[in-house]
Write a protein that binds this DNA or RNA. Structure first.
Length: 461
DNA sequence: GCATGATCATGC
DNA sequence: GCATGATCATGC
């Protein structure tokens, strides 16, 4: 069959692909597209392959254009209030074959064979639109810069090691920096065997973190609106030190110094009242300009939390997360819940401790939630969902309705649910009317990490 | 002194 | 106007 491009020539493929820019699938493909019978997630890509590139979708280990060595990926964008584009999600690459990965080296791995050179098609996802009418915004090839590739290789090695240790079922996206092991499959019961344990493991795929995809988007779109400072300046450094090594080394210089001593030795004057005070202090210690973002943190979706410990080592406050909408919570499954999504991130904790009125830098710690604790967080989430579903939020106690049934600190060592609102009248609608109050809305709440959990499982470990 | 509920301040 | 990080108030 005659193709409108040469599938053996990378530049011919890219040139043909770029004609998609500004178009929808409906506009770019012939009318056969109207009888497509692809449904469910991933069908944008399948339609693109069959009706634009004119080959049958497959699940080969080879790149989609094998001779040209090019893998085709289409992935959604979302648009921010300020009109900027961001990735709507992580970029899912090939499935991790647990039996195969432990026998491979990175350079000859099936991951690298398939994904060394990717042709990316970014389309704007718009709620309520037929996917044939999503507008394709950006098209270009992507090659990994060598410093990024070094980190991706380290991530790949860590995933391999976890499988080799018989812990494929404990994999988490938070384990790694740029390359994640994300769940892939219809639901939590999509499991498969692993080589060194009898415990079935969830099906997972290699994926690029959302923050990394944002970096790709900015790079392809030549968007230089944000400035970045690097922790890792070049490949030599990347080969010798991990992100973690570099950050901890830089902070170590200031361990056991007070905030004012740190500011003084950095020659820094910061507004203590400013909301970004701690973020700026962190940047300064890491040698990043205050008006710049930390490139590696952005790419790895790292969440930085500054903790102030009391003299007895207990964090002064619990850690809050964004409020949840009751109506959305009851529609979610744990696996794709907003709470789990946050807990799957890599965190950097910066610990200060009070000595009288002074705050002393004690240590920094990279952390992601261990598997067993994630299971405990899941129980808190399930209990919360159940309470909302049953309209069972408000509890009568001694005739007074000032308590809720939401899981408190007694329910779990890991997490609890508390208000997080402007005031008691700052509410979200309830999917089920509360049985006690007959109210159809309730004060905004969120999940919190218990301060005792932060002390025992993050600070002391 | 902590758990729980409530609220504030800043910045986008 | 609201999300986010931070903090306060009360009662046990």
């Amino acid at each position: 069959m005659d193709l409108p491009y040469n599938p053996n020539d990378k530049y011919s493929i890219i040139e043909y692909a770029k004609k998609l820019t500004g178009k929808t699938l409906r506009e770019a493909c012939n009318e056969n597209i109207l009888v497509h019978n692809y449904s469910g997630k991933g069908n944008f890509g399948q339609i693109l392959e069959k009706y634009y590139f004119l080959y049958e979708p497959n699940s080969d280990a080879e790149p989609d254009f094998a001779i040209a060595g090019l893998e085709l990926k289409s992935t959604p964008l979302k648009q921010l209030q300020n009109a900027d584009y961001r990735s709507k999600e992580r970029l899912v690459l090939n499935i991790i074959n647990y039996f195969e990965v432990v026998t491979q080296d990175f350079e000859t791995s099936s991951f690298w064979k398939k994904n060394a050179n990717i042709l990316l098609i970014f389309y704007l996802h718009q709620a309520g639109y037929n996917l044939l009418d999503y507008i394709i915004k950006l098209v270009d090839e992507w090659n990994f810069p060598n410093t990024d590739l070094e980190i991706i290789k380290q991530d790949w090695e860590l995933i391999k090691k976890k499988v080799a240790d018989g812990k494929a079922h404990e994999l988490s996206e938070g384990d790694t920096y740029y390359l994640g092991a994300c769940t892939k499959g219809a639901n939590a019961s999509s499991v498969r065997k692993q080589p060194f344990s009898n415990t079935p493991a969830k099906q997972r795929a290699f994926s690029l973190k959302q923050g990394y995809v944002n970096h790709i988007i900015a790079s392809i779109a030549n968007d230089n609106s944000a400035t970045y400072g690097k922790l890792i300046p070049n490949l030599d450094v990347a080969k010798k030190q991990t992100i973690e090594d570099i950050v901890i080394n830089k902070f170590k210089t200031y361990y056991n110094k007070s905030e004012s001593e740190i500011l003084q030795s950095l020659g820094l004057k910061l507004n203590l009242q400013a909301k970004n005070y701690y973020a700026n202090l962190t940047k300064s210690i890491l040698g990043i300009e205050l008006n710049s973002e930390i490139e590696e943190f952005k790419k790895a979706d790292i969440i930085v939390k500054t903790i102030r410990l009391k003299e007895n080592n207990l964090p002064k406050e619990d850690i809050s997360f964004p409020t949840f909408k009751y109506e959305e919570l009851v529609e979610e499954d744990w696996e794709e819940s907003a709470f789990k999504e946050i807990l799957e991130h890599k965190f950097l904790f910066v610990f200060f401790q009070f000595e009288g009125n002074h705050l002393i830098l004690k240590k920094v710690k990279f952390w992601n939630m261990p598997f067993a604790d994630m299971e405990k967080a899941k129980e808190v989430w399930h209990r919360t969902k159940e309470i909302v579903e049953n309209g069972d939020i408000v509890k009568k106690f001694k005739g007074v309705t000032r308590y809720t049934n939401f899981p408190s600190k007694k329910f779990s060592t890991v997490s609890h649910v508390r208000p997080h609102a402007q005031n008691a009248n700052d509410t979200y609608p309830l999917p089920v009317t509360d049985k006690v109050t007959n109210e159809k809305a309730y004060t905004k709440h969120c999940f919190w990490l218990n301060n005792t959990y932060v002390r025992d499982e993050i600070y002391f470990k």
